[in-house]
Amino acid sequence: MASPRAERKKPGNHNDFVQLCNPHVAAMKEDVLYHFNLSTGTHDFPAMFGDVKFVCVGGSPSRMKAFIKYVAVELGFDHPGADYPDLCESTDRYAMFKVGPVLSVSHGMGIPSIAIMLHELIKLLYHARCSGVTLIRIGTSGGIGVEPGSVVITRQAVDACFKQEFEQIVLGKRVVRNTHLDERLVQELARCSADLGGFPTVVGNTMCTLDFYEGQGRLDGALCSYTEKDKQRYLRAAYEAGIRNIEMESSVFAAMCNACGLPAAVVCVTLLDRLQGDQISSAHEVLAEYEQRPQQLVGCFIKKRLAAA
């Protein structure tokens, strides 16, 4: 049995089957993906998912269903009365939808929630014998020095100390993983944005925090031990470090995809400029339009990739 290190693929290799950084899974008679309510003992993973080439993940089940509907139209898979059932409908943890080679999965909010989902998602792709898979996180974020509605294509995922790493405690020991993202995907997505036009797009670093309030320097939480001046100093330092938005999932997403050799990208729209305030004040219909922007950009990317295949 190959060691986890030996099984690791070079990121960007689009020809190999999805592999794991865990030698124990191959020896299991049955693998129950508990939070998806799927199992290798009860489901035919290659038949259900073997053709998947693109996996898009985002926080909200409704947003990911809207995305699969949008992609179905863009790729010509849509038809009158089309329905896209939740493949995880027997559980309320996550939602999963599929059309053609595209899988759309919700991951909830924060590092623990997306990490659990990613463990089971990557195993699903492994059991399905998928190859050449690209993963993209689409979502919302708080901007730093960019206007609300701007789409940020992440160049590097960094932690709250601006380091390009993700720290995990494993068996009582500190394990640090690199949060490298695929530069080729960044450039492809930037070109798609130029082709689309219609909304501002920037390439920049994304800061991933463990919390929505104090962890992001907000002044409006139940706890706050710093001043407006302290907050502004921190956020401006982040801007100087190339950070253009803040969210709560990108670092572990990048780290896990990188460890398993899966090309990955993060595309998030900003709902506000945190240098100007902490609370979202845009009207609901404006926010709804903002949320469609990452979907449009990633839909364009998928369409171009399939046309070139």
Rank of each mutant, 00 (worst) to 15 (best):
Q156K: 14
A157F: 09
V158Q: 02
V158C: 12
V158L: 10
F162A: 12
F162Y: 08
Q164A: 15
E165F: 02
E167K: 09
I169G: 05
V170G: 04
R174S: 14
V175A: 10
V176D: 05
N178L: 10
T179R: 02
H180P: 02
R184H: 11
L185K: 05
V186Y: 02
Q187K: 13
Q187W: 04
E188N: 15
E188T: 10
L189Y: 00
A190S: 13
A190K: 11
R191A: 15
D195E: 14
G197R: 06
F199A: 07
V202H: 11
V203Y: 05
V203C: 09
V203R: 05
G204Q: 05
G204R: 02
M207K: 06
C208D: 01
E214F: 04
Q216T: 06
Q216H: 03
G217T: 03
G217Y: 07
R218N: 07
L219Q: 02
L219G: 01
S225R: 10
Y226P: 00
T227Q: 02
E228N: 11
K229E: 12
K231F: 10
K231Q: 09
K231L: 05
K231H: 04
K231D: 00
Y234P: 03
L235M: 07
R236F: 04
A237N: 14
A238V: 09
E240G: 06
S250Y: 12
V252Y: 03
V252T: 12
F253V: 01
C257F: 01
N258T: 12
